[in-house]
Design a protein around this nucleic acid. Structure first.
Lengths: 112, 112
DNA sequence: AGCATAATTATGCAAATTTCTAATGACAGG
DNA sequence: CCTGTCATTAGAAATTTGCATAATTATGCT
């Protein structure tokens, strides 16, 4: 995890639509959902959803696998965990005493 | 922390400039920096920096206090910690076994 | 009061993002 | 092989964001 990747992930999560998609996929982990199910659940035009799913896939926030003519999307929880670790490290850099209960932040040393 | 606030915070962190500002303020916590120092350090036009600082302040990512004619900005580490907790909770909602070592995620129950 | 400095606000414009409509590609089933 | 469904892609329109110039507010100092 570095600044550029983190920035890309933040961009992915900055949109209300994409945050909704991600949360929905987390809720449906580890099975995931096919694109049509996501569109139905969030009442989004398929073309619009595709646009956002593409961005999220590119960012690594979700994974996609083909199932016949369906595309199944799953939240990438590993990447999310890396982002959390990065944030924790950034938040504590040189100031572990300032963070509330982030005592387990083992990655507090390698910033940037 | 809820979805709207989280989304606003992600927007704040999605810009490379704003992420730089935040990281610089974390590095200089808890003293903080006055606007001019930030502008010098990141070689940003003051008017441009003001634009971003305003957004970050509005999002609650940084705090500002007046010192004479200077404005001192500080990273709001409490908010950042809340965001980390929110992410951890979202990431684990109903699926604690899926997250790597987020065992301390005490806020795993109150989503949205 | 008058002037210099720090910072923000206002305005206009370029660039990026998001959304919509239409069209295309991919697959399953009769 | 033809048709219907799922999903993406292409391109244009609308919206939002970011930045530069200029003007304004606020403060300190003499």
């Amino acid at each position: 995890m570095n600044k550029e990747i983190a920035s890309t992930l933040f961009e992915s999560l900055a949109s209300g639509v994409r945050l909704d998609v991600f949360r929905l996929l987390v809720k449906n982990a580890p099975t995931g959902l096919v694109a049509g199910e996501i569109a139905t659940e969030l009442t989004l035009p398929p073309t619009n959803l595709s646009f956002h799913l593409k961005a999220m896939t590119h960012a690594g926030l979700v994974n996609v696998t083909q199932e016949g003519r369906y595309q199944r999307y799953r939240a990438n929880l590993t990447v999310m965990q890396s982002l959390i670790d990065y944030l924790t490290a950034e938040c504590c850099t040189g100031h572990p005493e300032l963070c509330l209960d982030a005592g387990e932040a083992s990655a507090c040393c390698d910033s940037d």
